[in-house]
Amino acid sequence: MGSVGSDPATRHLAPTVERSVKVLVVGAFGVGKTTLIDAVSEIPVLSTEETITTASVGVDPARAAKSTTTVAMDFGRVTVGGTTALYLFGTPGQRRFWDLWAGLADGAVGALIVVDTRRLEESFEVLDQLEEHTRMPLAVVVNEFPDSPRHSGDAVRAALDLPAGTPVVSGDLRSRADAVEALQVLVGRAVELRRAEGGAAA
């Protein structure tokens, strides 16, 4: 992970930027979320922290037994089409961080789920979270490690019990082209779902 960029040309947003959007990059610990963000980002990956109160979701905060946790999130940014800053937020997948996730998910284009086929079962908790709490557009990207078994998209989709139509791509997430392709597939999915909603959208 790089330090805060020293080149003002890339650290600051271009003056043409007029809006921002975000995608979430989710997945089990160590699966390659930050690798993907770093491959796409025009700035060195930054880290931010939030203090969250766990075990008090849906409970009167004054009465609940609270414990506070600091959660670190890596993020990056890429300017697309000259006018839009696209932020990629790497989000820890564990259930206890859901409180943090909820606010993050609001307004997101969608979630890119990074999986490692050598330990697919570690992705189940993340998928459970997504399915229980959001109906965000989803796409799966299989991070292909040299010793990963190769599976078809259908096999991965079946193993993860993904909603029908969820795109599955695979690639080496250190490669910018592969990481960009994964992002493109997710946003393409979001466009497709939004079109299908037609005029009924809020």
């Binding site: 300017t79 697309v80 089409g81 006018t83 696209l86 284009v109 960009v180 946003v187």
Partner: peptide, 8 residues
Amino acid sequence: LESVLNGI
């Protein structure tokens, strides 16, 4: 969304 897709 379409403009983001085109940009990517």
